[in-house]
């Protein structure tokens, strides 16, 4: 899916928006990284994310900024072709397949009670997992950036493991841990908590696979915040929480939201790890991607495509919403 390298580039993109707060000294370090390449990677991750910046601040005219590097034409052409073949073509096929029947049929399949229950679980669990990851991801990033401790490199590396692990392995491991006879599950069972094979299990798996996103987007931004800023805030009489909320918070907000959006998007579509820990009971613990597989098993290709289109549309709207909040956060930060 995405590489840490991709996120590095994303981060530079965010940095470039920040010279207002952080003074001319900072702008110098991050400016040269803004080339055509990042926009390609960024748009692959969230297609609409780079557009608002272009239109939001016409005064900066990011659209065709004179660049020191040549080759805008060919790279832009390649970008469009690449995205067209890689992203748009399969999506078009999906939509064509889904539009095979009448509108009434589409609506009936899309809003069947079982489908609604599955969306609710998939989006609900993904949202909860992304929120948990937002809070604890920022915390982990903070610890990794601000403190020195033994084996820090190792801990840093651990964060990426959910990326590298095959999702089925993660799912089986989690199911083994949290099942009523598992290491953790047997203790939870004593308190009457059922983790595996319930909605809780689904959320746990989604928290696991979404962990790296927030950490890896926030970490580099935190790294670039000068500790002097915090000292300055303190010397001006700010209490620690005020420093965090008014100085650090706004600076890491756009990056944290990006991480949140990525973790959420990944979680909504996740199948491999969830399937082993979800009970897969219709109306209760059946995720939407499983419903798609079930429709395929019945040779109902159109029905599967319909659920796919609904999920796609819902994810797109949610990501768009998150991007709008992000834009608002950036503009607000610019005005402080």
């Amino acid at each position: 899916m995405m590489t840490p390298k991709g996120m590095q580039i994303r981060r530079l993109d965010i940095d470039a928006e920040e010279p207002h707060t952080l003074g001319p000294g900072r702008a110098r370090t991050s400016r040269p990284a803004l080339t055509v390449v990042p926009s390609q990677v960024v748009s692959e991750m969230s297609p609409e994310s780079d557009k608002p910046t272009g239109h939001a601040k016409p005064r900066r005219s990011t659209w065709r900024t004179p660049s020191a590097l040549p080759g805008f034409g060919p790279t832009m052409g390649f970008t469009l072709l690449y995205l067209g073949i890689l992203v748009l073509l399969p999506l078009a096929a999906l939509i064509i397949k889904a539009s095979g029947g009448t509108w009434a049929q589409f609506w009936a399949t899309a809003t069947a009670p079982r489908a609604l229950a599955a969306y609710q679980l998939s989006f609900g669990a993904a949202l909860i997992a992304a929120v948990v990851n937002l809070v604890f991801g920022v915390l982990v990033a903070w610890v990794l950036v601000r403190y020195e401790f033994p084996f820090k490199r190792l801990v840093d590396g651990l964060v990426d493991l959910p990326f590298a692990l095959p999702t089925a392995v993660a799912g089986i491991a989690l199911a083994t841990l949290y099942s009523p006879k598992g290491w953790i599950g047997q203790f939870l069972d004593q308190f009457g908590i059922k983790a595996a094979y319930t909605e809780t299990g689904v959320t746990l798996a989604l928290i696991f696979i979404g962990l790296p996103f927030v950490v890896r987007t926030v970490q580099p931004v935190l790294q670039d915040i000068d500790p002097e800023l915090e000292e300055a805030a303190a010397s001006l009489g700010a209490k620690p929480w005020q420093t965090f909320v008014r100085v650090i918070g706004p600076a890491i907000m756009p990056a944290a939201l990006t991480g949140f959006a990525l973790a959420f998007a990944r979680a909504v579509g996740e199948y491999g790890s969830v399937i082993f820990i979800a009970g897969n009971i219709p109306m209760k613990s059946e995720i939407a991607p499983l419903l798609i597989i079930i429709k395929l098993e019945q040779y109902d290709y159109r029905g599967a495509a319909v659920i796919g289109v609904v999920m796609l549309a819902a994810s797109f709207l949610l990501l768009l919403g998150i991007n709008l909040i992000q834009r608002w956060a950036r503009t607000r930060q610019g005005e402080i």
């Binding site: 094979y197 399937i275 009970g279 897969n280 009971i281 499983l290 597989i293």
Partner: peptide, 8 residues
């Protein structure tokens, strides 16, 4: 009702 998990 007695089935806690439906594997695929």
């Amino acid at each position: 009702k007695n089935v806690p998990v439906l594997d695929t």
